[in-house]
Design a protein around this nucleic acid. Structure first.
Lengths: 127, 127
DNA sequence: TATAATAATAGTAATTATTACTATTATCGG
DNA sequence: CCGATAATAGTAATAATTACTATTATTATA
């Protein structure tokens, strides 16, 4: 594997984001400093960085995938009002997967769940 | 809302399936008894039946959605080896959502989680 | 340092599941 | 039986992502 400025830039952008950017958003930011970077390059490198374990992909159903600099185990919540993605950090380790594995005999690989809901802020505005 | 043979057939097919069919599969089965039914009709009616609460949609990331005759609360596991979708029925009510709602302040709407993993049968074959 | 092998890129085309569109057909209350 | 309109078949469009290909950049080594 060879070094590339594009890949370094893409990793920097994700690492400096605080809002789980989509490939599109990474692409838009990347173009500021590298105007003719290609969207395909952004996708390819984001997925490569996921494979290398340097970032995580948040698999969003019915929408664009998002990318996360935080690679430790945690879940996500997507707000159906504002569309933002929030981290869900549980203090105690998940029991749900253990319970399921024991009662079914299957092995669970996904540990990152994506919930849909309404975030704290949007709940305030509803009143 | 008017009655339609297409819709009745589609509901029948889902209700007689034991394997969470995709729209494609429903379409293929439907064509046996109604050769010029349209795929668009299948999609429209499946989604309509979901809205009416008569069936459920299993939102599969990176693949075709699946439909389920069982409308009571339960989760699913998709096997990454054989691609089958399994029901996950938990005896005790989910505590996970309650824990998340209390610790974050968000409201969770999804109660049907889709896990990825390796099913019992495929685990046997691996040995 | 020059060079050869090849990894990575830009730009475009293709893919895949699903939805939108539209003219025609089927349903059903009066 | 008939008119209003819901539903359909068939086709086109959409949207996110991946595949393809000629060109460019990187890096090991002579």
């Amino acid at each position: 594997m060879k070094n590339s400025n594009q890949r370094n830039l893409i990793l920097d952008i994700v690492n400096n984001s605080h809002n789980h950017p989509t490939a599109d958003i990474v692409y838009a930011i990347a173009k500021d400093s590298m105007p003719n970077i290609s969207l395909g390059t952004v996708y390819r490198n984001l997925n490569l960085l996921v494979e290398l374990g340097q970032i995580k992909k948040i698999a969003i159903y019915n929408g664009q995938d998002r990318f996360d600099k935080t690679i430790t185990h945690h879940h996500h919540l997507v707000c159906i009002k504002c569309g933002r993605t929030f981290d869900i950090l549980l203090e105690d380790k998940d029991e749900l997967c253990n319970v399921i594995e024991k009662s079914t005999g299957h092995t669970i690989i996904t540990n990152d769940l994506v919930f849909k809901g309404i975030c704290k802020d949007c709940k305030k505005e509803e009143r």
